[in-house]
């Protein structure tokens, strides 16, 4: 049984569900799994609670330099433990991905991204990912230590954790250059009036809607069909709508009965947040847009023209 190390990310006292999902998956493979937590002023019993999610042991790196959610000090902290492991597994997330990438460079390891399956074979870990717009499944193995980065929501969290694991504190030596970047504040996600994860029908606005001045067209469609408005990261980053409306890897995960994507390309980051919707309608003028590959109803045409017509057709029913 190869030695598996799972990096568990956390933010403001909350363990990452993406990391916990990978931890549960690793534990299900049959051996003893070690979890790795990095932070500042971390409580042993909190770290030990990872035992309920599948860890047989928890390695805890606790140092003031590990405060702040930046990846590079964490690479320094995990490096020695990673070198002793056969594979280091990460859940999806911005910090997790940066740690995985930095670690791959640091120890010269292979890295498998966007993994949706993890298994053991031939004495090592193998990871499978959908690739090329999810048209093929590629299974990768590793020479030496393997690094696996999971796709968002690929592995479910153990919903009824119980038990604790022993915690071992590890020495931390953070390199000066790793501490050069400094956190300088957070823009808290503003509270939205509506929780889009609860909506049965969502109408999503993507960049194909042209500009923020056209968001009301999508709002009208949502109203006409009895749904709420969701959005892609691109339009949230561009300031059209608030972050709380974002669906995808760094946004919400939704599974409504109906998802109408207006001018949404369907990039992986968006897809992982909405692929489990019951029925997906895609309106996008680019016939090569990835969303047409997995939509149930693909409308090839300009969302800007079609959305108001759709609102009209719904209202006249």
């Amino acid at each position: 049984m190869p030695g598996l190390l799972v990096y568990v990310d956390h933010d403001e006292g909350e363990l990452s569900p993406q990391s916990l999902g990978v931890l549960a998956k690793a534990a299900s493979l049959g051996g003893e799994v070690t979890a790795f937590v990095a932070g500042s002023g971390v409580d042993d019993s909190w770290a030990g609670s990872l035992g309920g999610h599948g860890a047989a042991k928890v390695l805890l790196a606790d140092d003031p330099a590990l405060e702040g959610g930046l990846s590079q000090p964490i690479v320094d902290a995990i490096e020695a433990s990673a070198r002793e492991a056969d594979a280091v597994l990460f859940g999806a997330g911005v910090v997790s991905a940066d740690v995985a990438a930095g670690l791959a460079a640091r120890i010269g390891a292979g890295i498998a991204c966007e993994s949706t399956e993890i298994a053991l074979a031939d004495g090592g870990v193998v990871a499978t990912r959908p690739a090329l717009g999810d048209t093929v499944m590629v299974e990768s193995g590793f020479r030496g230590t393997g690094i696996v980065l999971a796709r968002a929501n690929a592995f479910p969290v153990n919903e009824s954790p119980s038990g604790t694991a022993p915690v071992e504190r590890v020495a931390v030596e953070v390199k000066p250059w790793s501490q050069a970047a400094r956190p300088a504040g957070r823009e808290a996600a503003e509270a939205a009036g509506v929780d889009i994860t609860e909506a049965e029908i969502l109408v999503a606005v993507g960049r194909g809607m042209g500009g923020p001045e056209n968001v009301p067209l999508v709002e009208e469609l949502a109203k006409a069909i009895g749904g709420e408005v969701a959005a892609t990261r691109a339009v949230v980053d561009a300031g059209w709508v608030p972050y709380a409306m974002q669906v995808g890897q760094t946004g919400k995960t939704v599974s409504p009965k109906l998802y109408i994507a207006c001018g949404v390309s369907g990039a992986i980051q968006h897809k992982v947040g909405m692929a489990n919707a019951g029925t997906i309608v895609a309106i996008n003028k680019d016939p090569n847009a990835p969303i047409h590959e997995f939509a149930d109803v693909s409308v090839i045409g300009d969302a800007l023209t079609i959305v108001p017509k759709l609102t009209e057709a719904l209202r006249s029913r």
Partner: peptide, 26 residues
């Protein structure tokens, strides 16, 4: 250090309906 072991088609998914729109006629 990472080696592709195999490449396979994904699980089959029922094909969706495609509609070519013209001026919102869909």
């Amino acid at each position: 250090q990472s080696i592709v072991r195999s490449v396979a088609p994904p699980a089959a998914k029922s094909a969706g309906v495609t509609i070519e729109d013209s001026g919102g006629d869909s």
